[in-house]
Design a protein around this nucleic acid. Structure first.
Lengths: 148, 148
DNA sequence: GAATATTAGGTTGTGCACAATTTAATTTTA
DNA sequence: TAAAATTAAATTGTGCACAACCTAATATTC
């Protein structure tokens, strides 16, 4: 493989990830539309369904998003009645985010989504696992490079 | 692997792709900033450096983007003096997009980018190839599912 | 060749993403 | 403990993404 070919490959890989990400979001859309959610909002709920309460900071660390993205997103979710935001009493710099009962209830309705997605992806369980392992390694590596 | 575990895996894979895409864009940013480009603009240039001239429609098909995204993006690139947009004389529905000499010249300056990216990714050539193959398959599959 | 359908782009409105800056609260240090 | 540094969110501004809709040009059908 010559140098030029290598460069093309690299461009293609980055592009594939970029395009794939958008296509995945598009795949979720019809299901999330029924729940009145966007994909990033769904990710926030996935975190909250596990932890029930968290901070903006912790959410950002989990989802790799900063307050510039999360603050307006969480405000929209609060407006929709899914979460509640309030300053921590112990440390007033922090904003605690927790589910409302409505946000909690959405968990049931959303439970069909992962099955539908897995079916649409066309991957077997084994392929899933392999893809995930490779991906998380790449993600961790790039993230650490970006942090520097 | 039980059902619940499978669902978590699926969520993690989609999230990894989503987060990875943003981290890759972030990795490009310092290099692209020097050229006054964004990542989607760089992708447009990659296409034009190959073909020299294309249509909005064809660009959209290559990059999986629609006119709602491309029209304002191309206008900004035109404003920056990188491309020229003009209606086709043969079929006035089409808008031809071609490089200016300035856009052509940027190719030289951009040539260091792929090397830097490949080094940052931490992948060997073999890993690159394997990742790319898996990815394009996934992309094609999901894209075809979404088209239906 | 007039009516209909299709196609290519553009426009509008909403929601991320993120850099850069600001504000306020808490910690650290002199 | 007062000053300096750090931290957590919020704000502002730019640029995608994309759905829904609109307009104009071309193709098709009758």
């Amino acid at each position: 493989m010559d140098h030029n070919e290598q460069l093309k490959l690299e461009n293609q890989l980055c592009f594939s990830v970029y395009a794939c990400s958008r296509e995945i979001t598009k795949m979720y859309r019809p299901y999330l539309d029924q729940l009145g959610l966007t994909y990033p909002q769904y990710l926030v709920l996935l975190v909250l369904w596990e932890h029930h309460e968290t901070t903006v900071k912790a959410l950002g660390a989990e989802l790799y998003l900063d307050s510039g993205t999360l603050t307006p997103l969480l405000k929209r979710m609060e407006e929709a009645g899914l979460v509640k935001r309030e300053r921590s009493k112990e440390d007033e710099r922090r904003v605690m985010v927790h589910l409302t009962s409505e946000g909690e209830e959405l968990r049931e309705k959303a439970s069909i989504i992962p099955d539908a997605m897995a079916a649409n992806s066309g991957l077997s369980k084994e392929e899933f696992k392999k893809a995930l392992t490779g991906f998380q390694q790449l993600l961790d590596h790039i993230h650490s490079v970006n942090e520097k």
